[in-house]
Design a binder for these strands. Structure first.
Lengths: 152, 152
DNA sequence: AATTTAGTTCATTAATTACTGAACTTTATA
DNA sequence: TATAAAGTTCAGTAATTAATGAACTAAATT
């Protein structure tokens, strides 16, 4: 196993922890460590020794999650892939979305059972406030990053 | 199916999206929606109609991730569980940890291949800077929350 | 000391998720 | 209009992950 191959496996395992298929993580690992600006479907298939089906499915998964993006080369009908940069902001947006979903789940759950001064309701309300705080802060973080980047 | 049971399934599915076993998500759903401050192992087992093994394994999973905590009642040797509140900060800490892990993966990957002014290196460096930004901001967010809470 | 309680462990089984490979679609050359 | 290229789709299979249930441990009660 070359150092690069080991690296790719490592990245695959890293992403597996966060619920992505290992192959999707390995695609990211390849895109980070490859020796070229232009990485095609077949490059991935060959480097990762995987089937077309698996590469196709995982590329589309990563595209849907805005983790990679496709680019083309004039006079060439292959597609090339790279880690997404336009959509860095999506990391925060995705986080914001999950925060706001969980906030709703909590709020809904608070409607069940128990009187309003039970310990549990106090506890859950505090958690709810924390999520509300995060929900407010995420867009501010995004703005902060954008401003920092305009200056650069 | 009662409204509460439906709610519990819903929470289970929500957490499944984020890589938890469904049963772990259902435990959280029960803890949010139950009618009591004190929810025991057996309450969970009965309400969720699951085996002791599954409840035990998933409770420990949630405890390890600081998503729930155990509390006791004097003169009672059962354990009771509730959603974690002391460790709300862990949401940010966990996020910070994954950000910093990924930052390292990227930095490592940049060591492979290509000359330093390739498009890819420029691209990855920009992503790296974004992660560095997030890495700096997470602790600030934590401080902001703590200060807001002292004032309250 | 025997029994009960509270939970853990782990082998087996069930359920889910991912991968393969062959057939297919679509667009572009020859 | 045939052939090829680039990828997609999907049925079948492989691999992984989760749940069950019975046997077990450790502590408390009779």
């Amino acid at each position: 196993m070359t150092a690069q191959e080991e690296y790719i496996e490592h990245v695959g395992l890293f992403y597996e922890q966060y619920g992505l298929p290992k192959m999707a993580g390995r695609i990211l690992g390849y895109l980070i460590s490859s020796n070229s600006d232009n990485n095609s479907f077949d490059d991935l298939k060959d480097a990762l020794k995987a089937s077309k089906g698996s590469i196709s499915g995982n590329i589309n998964l990563l595209l849907n999650q805005n983790m990679i993006e496709k680019h083309m080369i004039a006079g060439d009908r292959k597609s090339y892939y790279k880690m997404s940069i336009n959509n860095l902001e999506n990391i925060l947006e995705a986080k914001a979305k999950s925060i706001s979903q969980f906030k709703n789940i909590l709020a809904q759950g608070l409607a069940f059972g128990l009187d309003d001064n039970s310990l549990k309701k106090q506890n859950l309300n505090e958690i709810l406030h924390y999520y509300e705080f995060l929900e407010e802060e995420m867009p501010l973080l995004k703005i902060k990053w954008e401003q920092k980047n305009i200056k650069r």
